[in-house]
Write a protein that binds this DNA or RNA. Structure first.
Lengths: 146, 146
DNA sequence: GCATAGTCGAGTGATCCGGTTAAGTATCTT
DNA sequence: AAGATACTTAACCGGATCACTCGACTATGC
C-alpha cells in the first residue's frame, strides 16, 4: 500500500503556489525549476488540480497558475483526493464469490472504513497555510545562524 | 490508494482460524469453502502468513493450518504487514531530482509519516480476538429473532 | 508405497504508474 | 495580423503490480 509520487508532486506544487500567493500567476516552468519535477509530468498534475477546482490557470504569455482559494481553505485531503482518487478503497467491484459466511467480510471492511475515516480526518486537518507556517518557522530559526 | 484484496482475504483467513482455535488444524480447502476465496490464491496467502510467523502449517493427511499465537496476540497490523508489506510508503527509491528547494519535500513527507503512524496505531489496536468478539455479539443478538 | 494434503515457483492477462511525445488551443506582445 | 508563449489534451510506452492459474514437488499417515 503505497502513496504514488503524483500525490507528493502535486502537493509540492500546491505548496509552491501557496508560498507565492499574490505574486500573480506562477508558471509551471518555474515550479519545475524549484521543485525538480519533470515539466511534462507536472503539467499533467496541474491539470488534475485545476479540474478539482484547487487552482486556476491563465493561458498565454505571462500566464501561469494560482490557487483558487486561500491556502487556509485548501487541505491536504483536498489535494490527495484530486490526485489519487479515493483513499484506502478496497476493490468492491470484484465478483464477490458469495462466501458461506459473509459476516467475516463485513467485519474486515468495517476495520478499513474506520481506518479510512481516521486518515481522512487527519489529512483534512492540515491546510496549505499550516504547512507554509511550519516552513517559515524553520527557515526563521535558521536565520540566527547566518 | 487502495487496499489489495490480498489483505482482505488474508485477514478473513486469519479470522476463520481464530474462530476455530483448539479444533486442530484447519485445512485450506475448508477455509476456501467457508470464505469463498479461490483455493489456489488462498494457498499463496497462507504461505505469506506462515512466513510471517502468524500461522503454523501441518502437512500430510489431516494436516492444515492453525494460529501460531492466541487471537489476542495477533493484530490487524501484523496481518497487513505480512500480506501487503509496509503501509503507506512513498517511493523513496526514485532518482530524486534534487530540487532547488528540498524543504517542501520534507514537509510533505512529514505529513505522510504522521498519517502512517496514526494508521499503524489504529490497526495495531485491533486484535483477532476483538473481531471475534464483535462477531459473536452480533450473532448472539440475532438469536432473538429465531 | 501410495494416496493425501500442503508447499512452492513460474507464468499470465489486465491494470496502473511514471513519464514522454506530439499535436492543439488560448492569449499576450509587437 | 503574426508569432511567441504557455497551458491543454490525448495517445503512447516500458515496467511493475495484481489477482489468479498451473504444474510440479514434498512431507505425512495409513
Amino acid at each position: 500500500m503505497r502513496i504514488s509520487s503524483k500525490g507528493e508532486y502535486g502537493l509540492r506544487a500546491l505548496l509552491d503556489l501557496a508560498q507565492r500567493v499574490g505574486e500573480g500567476p506562477i508558471q509551471s516552468h518555474d515550479i519545475h525549476l524549484r521543485q525538480g519535477i519533470d515539466e511534462n509530468y507536472l503539467n499533467q498534475i496541474l491539470i488534475l488540480l485545476r479540474r478539482a477546482g484547487l487552482i486556476e490557470s491563465i493561458r498565454g504569455p505571462q500566464g501561469g497558475h494560482r490557487l483558487a482559494r486561500p491556502p487556509s481553505q485548501i487541505t491536504v485531503l483536498d489535494a490527495l483526493r484530486a490526485l489519487e482518487g479515493p483513499l484506502l478503497t478496497f476493490d468492491s467491484g470484484r465478483d464477490a464469490p458469495t462466501p458461506t459466511d459473509p459476516m467475516d467480510r463485513d467485519l474486515v471492511r468495517e476495520v478499513w472504513d474506520g481506518a479510512r475515516e481516521m486518515l481522512e480526518r487527519y489529512l483534512a486537518s492540515i491546510t496549505l497555510e499550516d504547512l507554509c507556517q511550519r516552513k517559515a518557522q524553520r527557515s526563521g530559526a535558521m536565520m540566527y545562524y547566518i
